[in-house]
Design a protein around this nucleic acid. Sequence first.
DNA 1: TTTCATTTGTCCGTATGTATT
DNA 2: AAATACATACGGACAAATGAA
Lengths: 82, 82
Amino acid sequence: MTIDHDGDTPVYRQIAAIIAERIESGDLQPRRRIPSESDLVQEYGVARETARRAVAYLREQGLVYTVPQRGTFVKPSEGDVE
Amino acid sequence: MTIDHDGDTPVYRQIAAIIAERIESGDLQPRRRIPSESDLVQEYGVARETARRAVAYLREQGLVYTVPQRGTFVKPSEGDVE
DNA sequence: TTTCATTTGTCCGTATGTATT
DNA sequence: AAATACATACGGACAAATGAA
């Protein structure tokens, strides 16, 4: 997966889409931590704000949840055990 | 040496320049520890991130090396004895 | 052995200024 | 004007290793 800096889709949404795909494919498991903002900065060569936006977008979509000072994690599905 | 918070040169580079000057003048000797991040925070009244950036900048310039949980030290010159 | 302070590593939250589109 | 992106700077918190007491 590569980032298109010139296309119509904002970079942060492209990154969010990649992570969302990893969640849906099971590559990123429920309650497991997703890559940190710094990881995303490194991996995709973007600014931290862009990485933060990508994570914020996933949060808005209800795919992940963030624990301050801990990280961002994949939300468990509805029927999952507590 | 005072920090100019409003000038063109970023604060972290000003601090890096001060330390670089201390190294070149011999005030900070090879293999000796440079001031810790906390020291720089105290001394120049900056955030830790800014202090960390200054050190990172010196590292990129090859002037110092960092040992985790130990500190950052002045790099010995080429011809120095091991 | 245990405790404690120090130090760097790694997180996250926020803000401002600038540039580009 | 507004959205996107980058650079800089400040703040707080916890983790982990080291070394000294």
